[in-house]
Design a protein around this nucleic acid. Structure first.
Lengths: 340, 340
DNA sequence: CACAACAGCCAAATCGTTTTGGCAAATAAG
DNA sequence: CTTATTTGCCAAAACGATTTGGCTGTTGTG
C-alpha cells in the first residue's frame, strides 16, 4: 500500500508527469491542458487519494508551509493560550506549527532558532528571552520573516505584538491610590525583560502623577528561577518596612499566587490588612478568597495578531513593520477596596 | 548567502558528493575513507556551517525526524503540561514536535491524523476524542507507530499511557465516606470518553464496597460543549434531591471551578453545607476558599512515558504493546472534612 | 496553398541528498 | 612476477515533485 506518486498517476493515465503536476497545481488552464485531460487527472488523483510528497515539494520549491513558534514555556497558561490561538489561525491558512520551549535560556533560544531554520520553517513567532539580540539582528539581516510576541527588543526595529505593560500597572496603582492606599509594595521579577521594566515604570509613573513619593524599599525583585524561595524574604521586608505597606501589586500571575500563600502563612488578612492586585491572571482568580483584582492581558488577540502579521508577510502583503501594542483590561474584585 | 550544499563542499575539496555524504553521516570509516579526507571534509563543513537539507534527506530516506501530537486543546493546563513534557523529551532525542488541537471533534481529529501523515511524521501521540475508531484501526493496520495518551480505546489493542480513573474517583468517594458523607453528588460530563465512564465506575464501586445504595438522582451529566450553562440546573437538582446531598465529587478541574461558582452564587457554604472533592486540579486550588481537596493526575509522567514508548518503537526497541496505567495522587484539603 | 499561430502535450533538467555497485591503484600473498 | 586483496574513492540512479523549453499537429490567414 505505497502512497501514489505523481508518476503513478501519469503512468496509469498515459500522460506525462509534468502534465499531472500542472493540473494538480491548478495551472492546467494557463498551460492549455484540455479540460478532458484535466478532469481525467483530477478524478484519478482524488480516487487514489493522491497527496503530494511534502519533501519533494519542499525540496523543489524551498517552501515548507510550516511556521516555528518559540516560547519560554508552553506549560504556562499564558503561553499555552497564545500557542493555541496561533496554531488555530495558522491551520486555517494552511500552515503547520512546530513549537519549542526556550525555558528562558538565551542559549536554548538560539539553538531553537537555528534548528527551526534548518527545518526550513517559512517564518517564526518568538516570545523571546530577550537575551539574544544577535540572533534577532541576524534574522533581520537575512530578511527572514518573523514576529515577536509578548516580548520585544525595544531598540531593534522589528514586527511585534506586545501589551501595554506600563499602562497596565499604571491602572493598577491608580486604582489602589483611589482606594486610599499610598504605601504600595511592588513585588516583581529582576528586570531583565522589557515587559517587567515597563511594569515598574507604570508603577512609578502612577505614583508620580498622584504626587506620591516613591519608596525604593517597597520594591522587591525576585529571581524568576527562584521566586518561590525568595518570596518569603520579600514579603517579610515589605511588612516590616517603614512605614509598613498597605497594599501590594504583584507583576505576574504566579507571583500573586505565591505571594498570597506567603501572606496566608503569616495570617495577614487580604484585603483587611493588605490589599493586593495582580498583573496577569489565572482563570480561577475569582474563586480565591478574596477574589483577586487583576489586570488582564489580551492573550487571544495577541496570538491572532501575531499570526496575521506573519502570514501577511509570507504572502507578500505589506512590507513595513507592524508594531502592535495591545491594551490591558482591569477586573476589580475583593482583594482590593472594591466590594464586588 | 545561499546555504552550502554537499555539492559545494565536494567541489571545493575536489572530492565526490557521495564521499562527503558518507563522511557527514559518520560512515567514513566503514566505507574506508582516509582519515585525512575525512578530516578535511568535516573541517570545511563546520567552517561553512553546513546543515543538510531536511527536504532532500527526507525525500531520500522517507524519515522526517518529526512526531505529531494531537490533543483536544492545548490551552487546557492539563494538556499543555503534557505537551510541554513531550516536546522536551522528544527534543532530547532529536525529534521535533508538530502539534494540533482537535477540539474534541472527531472529524477534525481525522483530518489532523491525515495531514500529519502527509507531513511524514514518523509517529503520533494522540489524546483522542475517542470518536475515531476507524482511523486508529487504520493506523494499526498500517503498522504506523503511535501512542495514545490520557484517552484510549478500550477495545482496540494499542500502546497507551493512561490514568487509573476508576481508582481516582474510588479514592475520592472512599474519603468522603470516611468523613461520614453518604449522599454524594456526582457532577460529570456525558460519558462519551472512556475516562469519564471509568470515573463513574469508581464512584459506583466505592459506594458499593461500603454498602451505600447508589442514587441515580445524584448523578448529573453535563455536556462538555455547554457545561457552563448546564451547571446551574445540575446544582439545583442536587440540592433539591431527596434526600439532599451532603457532598459533591466533580470529575474534572473545570467542572469543579464552575460548580463552586454556582454553589457560591446560592450562598451554599463549602464545606459546612456541602463538602466537595475535585478529580483533577488547577495549580492554585490551594488558594481557593476553601482550599480544594483533589485527586491529581500524574501529568508529567504521562508525557514522559508516551514519548519514551513512541521513540522506543521508532528506534526499533520493543515490538509488543506498552500499556501503562498510572496511579493518581490525593491531596486532602479543607473543602472536604479534613482540616489541613 | 504556404505559412503563422495556437492548442495540447512532453523530455529533460533540477532541487540536495543517499545508496548501490563499482573501478583503479597500492599492497600482500603465493 | 603474477594474482588476490585491500584501500580509497567515485559515477550514476534514485527519491517525487516543479519548471523550462520545446515539439507536434491542427486551425486560421492571406
Amino acid at each position: 500500500m505505497k502512497k501514489t506518486s505523481i508518476k503513478d498517476i501519469a503512468k496509469h493515465l498515459n500522460v506525462s508527469v509534468p502534465t499531472v503536476s500542472l493540473v494538480m497545481n491548478g495551472r492546467g488552464d494557463e498551460k492549455r491542458i484540455s479540460q478532458e485531460t484535466q478532469k481525467k487527472i483530477l478524478d484519478y488523483a482524488k480516487a487514489q487519494n493522491y497527496k503530494p510528497n511534502v519533501f519533494a515539494k519542499g525540496l523543489k520549491k524551498g517552501r515548507s508551509e510550516m511556521i516555528g513558534l518559540i516560547i519560554p514555556n508552553i506549560s504556562d497558561v499564558f503561553y499555552a493560550r497564545i500557542a493555541s490561538r496561533i496554531e488555530k489561525e495558522a491551520a486555517k491558512q494552511g500552515y503547520t506549527v512546530i513549537y519549542s520551549s526556550s525555558e528562558e535560556s538565551g542559549k536554548k533560544e538560539r539553538e531553537l532558532i537555528r534548528s527551526m531554520l534548518d527545518r526550513q520553517v517559512e517564518g517564526l513567532i518568538i516570545a523571546s528571552t530577550q537575551k539574544n539580540e544577535v540572533d534577532i539582528l541576524e534574522l533581520k539581516r537575512m530578511n527572514f520573516p518573523f514576529v515577536l510576541v509578548d516580548r520585544h527588543y525595544p531598540n531593534i526595529e522589528t514586527d511585534y505584538v506586545i501589551v501595554d505593560n506600563k499602562g497596565g500597572t499604571d491602572k493598577a496603582v491608580s486604582h489602589l491610590l483611589s482606594c486610599g492606599m499610598t504605601k504600595i509594595g511592588f513585588v516583581t521579577l529582576t528586570p531583565e525583560l522589557d515587559a517587567i521594566k515597563n511594569r515598574f515604570l507604570g508603577y512609578k509613573s502612577a505614583l508620580e502623577n498622584h504626587g506620591i513619593a516613591f519608596n525604593p524599599g517597597y520594591v522587591q525583585e525576585l529571581n524568576v528561577e527562584n521566586y518561590e524561595q525568595e518570596m518569603y524574604g520579600a514579603i517579610d521586608r515589605l511588612i516590616n518596612s517603614e512605614p509598613p505597606i498597605d497594599s501590594i501589586l504583584f507583576t505576574t500571575h504566579f507571583l500573586t499566587a505565591f505571594g498570597l500563600r506567603e501572606l496566608r502563612a503569616r495570617q495577614i488578612r487580604v484585603p483587611e490588612d493588605v490589599k493586593i492586585i495582580s498583573y496577569g491572571q489565572y482563570s480561577v482568580f475569582d474563586l480565591i478568597e478574596p477574589p483577586i483584582t487583576a489586570v488582564t492581558q489580551p492573550v487571544l488577540d495577541m496570538g491572532d495578531q501575531a499570526v496575521d502579521i506573519l502570514l501577511g508577510k509570507l504572502k507578500g502583503r505589506s512590507n513595513e513593520n507592524s508594531q502592535v501594542v495591545l491594551e490591558t483590561d482591569f477586573i476589580s474584585r475583593k482583594s482590593c477596596c472594591d466590594e464586588r
